[in-house]
Design a protein around this nucleic acid. Structure first.
Length: 949
DNA sequence: GAGGTCACG
DNA sequence: GACGTACGTGACCTCT
């Protein structure tokens, strides 16, 4: 600071919500590179920029916070239910900009505050009062007339309050307030109470406007005096109104009064301005295409520009740049992980200190420790937090004694600690970082905490490095990431809790060990986040991470938590039927085989079929074992081997019973009575989700007998299930991406695409040619080989090759797509979806032909499968807000099955929900990508999942 | 833990 | 000429 009196504090309080409305109306409707409207965000960003430029001026801010309105109702609605009821909804293209305001604030590393039940004005008033009490000067960045009540007030402390209208570049002091209202600031509230406010729906007194209100207050010196003087006034409308509506005026006075004693969620000192780190700001400016600001950021010559304060120095942690594939990147200059440095938090005082420090840090890595792996059932045992390298703590909450005689460990009351952490975990001003934070979201949601905003290092790793590994599939687990990126070997859960029968619950781990383990996880997560955030920007992963995968984390957590109801009795009934039939089959198979054997053992079955019974066609694989899979058994059955037919039926029923009818009953959550799958966001290299424990993405549908299992997935009483499918989405995307006129035309015309293919290929459409065409269409999507196609179609490789040639000829574009895709992957090492998701293929140039060809097929498929995954993920991220906006808060999204979404909704909502869901799904590529084929969506409803198809 | 099989898109 | 023979998953079973 170059101010003479360097101890003088000057607090700027930015009225963010008010600003954004004004900026919206004053600025042209800009959109960012993704087509998202950002005009108001741009205005807001330039305003913050201007304020940042004032940093080093003599009377510039030393402290700054942005205050936002949070909810739509506040305590004032309890006083007067019509308060602000007349407000029109914000313009459609402004709505998506609200959350970006927070992003912008965070990008400047500024504090951002919003509280339920309070308006921004109240928080501003409370902070302003507190600051002046301490002798600070305060500038309120706003032009809101309500806030003018605060201007000029000097307390004993000596601090003064003024306002700054950045748009008009106007300082508002006492003279300006008097000019506007005709009265000094302390009487502004009385004037406002008389005149009312039509926008906020403050009633005031009908017939009294600003002029009369000012005159009355000037004459009588205050509202109560004016009301008291009314009976003595000369008869007329004014006198009558004042008498009749005196109570309305008094209510209005309360409504316009600012609440100056709100609890302050963040201490004033934490608003201290320091250097503004460059990287997050640059990332934000780039993401939204604010290129002129970005240039100014990097242009050191602009003086007196923000350069000196918006210091472009590398982040203090020295994040390492991306490493070339395969080589270890240089390790960041951080102190090595020191398990002894972590604090075990055992008092509320210590906890409060950590919370305050986390607010100040604005980024906190968190990790929850629980008693089990299932986030829907696990009990919360503790929470760890990290604010920097080795700056981490563990808060034990649910530990037991190490044995039944041991004393209970000293720890905070769980409910009390969670309540203390809740404002931090829910604060928009603080980014919560987790490794697989979806798990923590679910656990904490069950304790009433909705964690936001979030980052997930596992998902970040996936967006950077999907498929990227010399030896195979790159994992994104914490231990692996710590080793790969930090050169650090983490404590393993096994070391701590053991395995198998001797395993103990985390709740039984002694606090000292638990602290080392849990805090280390948070510490490592914090470090990984510091590495990944700049890499995403440099390597082009920001778009897919910020726009698709990050928003999805919270959405998917919600779906998992919702679960789906299954009809236990129905499953049990099916199980019993299957059991009986399986026993019958077993007896007959053993009889035909000439003795008992384990039918479920492919090895024994092969020997029975090909050695003992002497059937032909036995093929041994590389393990020296006969193959007995479906196609082999079907071949035997065609030769008249009845036992093969019986084994096929046995296999089908055994599969259905063990994997579905039995396992699903066991998967019903005893608390919710529903089945909660867990989705992995990093499970499939192409960007698809995967589902596990239980897998709800492979519930039978293709056979009649399997389909009965789908009928056991049901809606709650009074509700129905709605299933919405993209039809032929991958073929449509192939038509678009390879630019195939005939296919695009067929999709545009709503034709049967396989029939069209049959016509092009064979000149005629019947069952047979359509079926063959369908096979070929899929073969194309999966990276064709003549051998594979020949096997599927039952023809020779030469005939298959002829068909491939014909396909390329009829559908020009396909061959070029395959060629270009492979070219790019060979060159860059990765493929990309239309939305920029990368999948790495480290073995694309392998000397091993099988390996190489396998990579080539996967590389041809990945952009198509991945783009499809991006599209449905975008639809999922938008679905919740779209349904809320449509007034359908009771429609719940439950499942995703790659090209299908399943919802549960009140029967009465079906007709309203159908078009909303259809629109969101069909339009999910836009505005990022303009497809040249329509996306078809088919919707069905029913009391069960089976019936909804 | 690996291999085989089969449920799904 | 061998290699293996369509992309992406997860669960269950048997056997080592």
């Amino acid at each position: 600071m170059d101010t003479p009196d360097s101890s003088k504090r000057h607090l700027y309080l930015v009225d963010g919500s008010a600003y954004i409305f004004r900026a919206y109306h004053r600025l042209p409707p800009l959109t960012n590179p993704r087509g998202v409207p950002v005009g108001a965000v741009y205005g807001y960003t330039t305003m913050l920029w201007k304020l940042a430029e004032d940093l080093h001026k003599a009377d510039g801010p030393t402290h700054l916070a942005v205050i936002l309105d949070k909810g739509s109702t506040t305590f004032r609605n309890a006083l007067y239910d019509q308060y602000k009821a007349n407000r029109p909804p914000p313009p459609e293209d402004l709505v998506p900009q609200f959350p970006l305001i927070r992003d912008a604030t965070r990008a400047f590393s500024l504090a951002c505050i919003e509280e339920d039940d309070l308006e921004a004005d109240d928080l501003i008033a409370s902070y302003a009062r507190e600051a002046t009490r301490l002798g600070w000067d305060v500038t309120i960045v706003s032009s809101d007339k309500d806030l003018m009540q605060l201007v000029g007030t000097c307390s004993e402390g000596g601090g003064c309050i003024d306002m700054l209208d950045t748009m008009k570049n106007l300082r508002i002091g006492i003279p300006e307030v008097i000019e506007k209202f005709g009265v000094p600031p302390e009487l502004v509230g009385d004037v406002l109470a008389l005149m009312g406010d039509s926008v906020d729906n403050v009633p005031g007194i009908r017939g009294i406007g600003p002029k009369t209100a000012t005159k009355l207050i000037q004459e009588h010196g205050g509202l109560e005096n004016a009301l008291a003087a009314a009976p003595a006034m000369k008869a007329g409308k004014l006198r009558e109104s004042l008498i009749e509506q005196a109570e309305m005026a008094r209510l209005s006075r309360v409504l316009v009064a600012l609440k100056e004693d709100c609890p302050l969620p963040i201490p004033l000192e934490d608003f201290a301005l320091g250097q503004i780190p460059r990287d997050p700001l640059a990332a934000f400016l780039e993401e939204h295409g604010f290129t002129s600001l970005l240039r100014r950021l990097d242009d050191g010559k602009g003086s007196p520009g923000p350069k000196t304060q918006l210091n472009p120095a590398k982040p203090e942690t020295g994040a390492a740049p991306a490493a070339p594939q395969g080589s270890r990147q240089p390790l960041p200059a951080w102190p090595t992980v020191d398990l002894a440095a972590y604090q075990c938090v055992q008092s509320m005082g210590e906890l409060q200190q950590w919370i305050a420090r986390a607010f100040a840090a604005r980024v906190v890595a968190i990790d929850t420790e629980t008693s089990a792996l299932d986030s829907m059932q696990a009990d919360l045992v503790g929470i760890s937090m990290a604010l920097g390298p080795n700056d981490a703590c563990y808060i034990p909450l649910g530990h037991r004694g190490t044995d039944m005689f041991a004393e209970m460990p000293l720890q905070l009351d769980r409910a009390e600690a969670v309540a203390a952490l809740k404002p931090l975990l829910e604060s928009d001003a603080v980014l919560k970082v987790g490794q697989n934070i979806k798990y923590d979201l679910t656990v904490l949601a069950r304790h009433g905490v909705d964690v936001a905003p979030i980052d997930d290092t596992m998902v970040m790793s996936f967006c950077l490095d999907a498929g990227r590994s010399e030896t195979g599939i790159a994992g994104h687990g914490m231990d692996e990431l710590a080793d790969r990126h930090l050169g650090h070997t983490t404590m393993t859960f096994k070391e701590l809790c053991g395995t198998g029968k001797k395993a103990i619950s985390f709740a039984e781990v002694p606090l000292a060990d638990a602290t080392r383990y849990a805090a280390e996880d948070a510490d490592v997560t914090w470090r990984l986040h510091r590495l990944f955030a700049p890499r995403l920007l440099e390597e082009g992963g920001t778009r897919i991470y910020q726009r698709v995968d990050r928003p999805l984390v919270t959405v998917v957590a919600g779906m998992e938590r919702a679960g789906i109801k299954v009809d236990r009795e129905r499953l049990a009934g099916l199980s019993a039927t299957f059991t009986t039939r399986i026993a019958e089959l077993e007896a007959v198979i053993h009889e035909k085989a000439g003795g008992p054997f384990t039918i479920g053992s492919p090895k024994q079955l092969g020997e029975v079929l090909f050695d003992r019974l002497g059937y032909k066609g036995g093929k041994k694989g590389k393990t020296g074992q006969y193959s007995t899979d479906q196609s082999v058994l079907e071949g035997l059955a065609a030769q008249g081997a009845e036992v093969a037919t019986l084994v096929l039926e046995w296999r089908q029923l055994s599969k259905l019973k063990s994997t579905y009818t039995e396992a699903l009953q066991a998967a019903i959550n005893p608390q919710t009575g529903r089945v909660h799958t867990s989705y992995s966001l990093v499970g499939a290299q192409t960007g698809r989700l995967s589902s596990n424990e239980p897998n709800l993405q492979n519930i039978p549908i293709r056979t009649e007998i399997g389909r009965q299992i789908r009928d056991a997935f049901v809606a709650e009483q009074g509700n129905v299930l709605l299933a919405a499918d993209y039809s032929q989405i991958e073929l449509r995307l192939a038509a678009h991406m390879a630019d195939v006129p005939a296919l695009k035309e067929a999709f545009a015309g709503g034709e049967d695409i396989h029939a069209r293919t049959a016509m092009e290929m064979f000149g005629t459409v019947d069952r047979d040619t359509r079926g063959r065409a369908k096979t070929i269409n899929f073969a194309i999507l999966y990276g064709i080989s003549r051998w594979g196609l020949a096997g599927r179609l039952g023809c020779t490789a030469e005939e298959a090759q002829a068909m491939i040639d014909r396909y390329f000829e009829r559908f020009p574009g396909i061959q070029r797509y395959i060629h270009d895709t492979l070219e790019k992957v060979r060159e860059c090492g990765y493929s990309e979806t239309l939305f920029g998701r990368k999948t790495w293929f480290p073995r694309i140039n392998s000397k091993n032909q099988a390996e190489r060809q396998g990579s080539e097929r996967a590389a041809i498929n990945a952009p198509i499968q991945g783009t499809s995954a991006d599209i449905i993920k975008r639809a999922m991220a938008r679905m919740g807000p779209a349904l809320i906006e449509a007034g359908l808060p009771n429609v719940r999204m439950l499942l995703q099955v790659h090209d299908e979404l399943v919802f549960e909704l009140p029967e009465g909502d079906v007709e309203a929900a159908r078009p909303v869901i259809e629109r969101v799904m069909a339009g999910a590529a836009e505005p990022s990508v303009r497809l040249t084929v329509p996306l078809g969506v088919e919707i069905g409803t029913g009391l069960s999942w089976g019936a909804a198809h």
